[in-house]
Amino acid sequence: MLKLVKMCKSFGAVCVADEISFEVSKGQALGVIGPNGAGKSTLFNLITGNLPPDRGYIGFEEQDITRLPPMKRVRMGIGRSFQIPQPFHRMTVFENLMVAAAFGRGLSEAEVIDDCVSILEQTEMVPRANVLAGQLSLLERKRLELARALATEPKLLLLDEIAGGLTEGECQKLIATIRGIHRTGVTIVWIEHVLHALTSVVDRLLVLDFGRVIGIGDPMSIMASKEVKEIYLGIDV
């Protein structure tokens, strides 16, 4: 479904994506881990088109999307949440969803009301529907990020540290919601520092360091590998 071939991106002398290649097939959930500054969010920005790559190829559902602008990729079914929530703060929660659904799917406002209501239910945001997004708590902002991404009806959902900064209880609830989304057939790529949250959902892990893929495979063996322990967990083995 998603295929990256030798993606490269540098900011000046700093290489934030160094020949990144991997594939995600339909219905899978891939977790992405790596130390701060490893290039995880950059990877998402390359996939969504927010950053143009220097070299390389991205395919989505067998189509070359390397040069497509972000809005076209959304229409094709790539939805994303931001690491730092970026709500439309002077619009209500419901309007945030409605604008995402209407433009992400090319429908009218009236056509998306029902779907927006069910996403509000799914993400437990119904009581906050008419509240300005700028007035939400952190958990609610994270939920809104998720809900807004869902409103575009993604086939591939990119989650950027959606569980970061939440309490254990909040985190568990969010995991349950994400599991539910995954069960409906949505492919997920999820960047996360909260490892147990990640491993309870994903089938594979990808480890990034200095813009390079240093391992990809099933979570158990990745976490057990010496290289990952050294680089990612900072343990001398």
């Binding site: 972000p70 959304v74 439309f88 703060h89 604008v99």
Partner: peptide, 18 residues
């Protein structure tokens, strides 16, 4: 509605297809 979204956050607006 799209104009409000762009006003609030143009990057996020792009990422929902505006």
């Amino acid at each position: 509605l799209a104009l409000f979204a762009v006003r609030d956050n143009s990057q996020a607006a792009q990422s929902v297809g505006i």
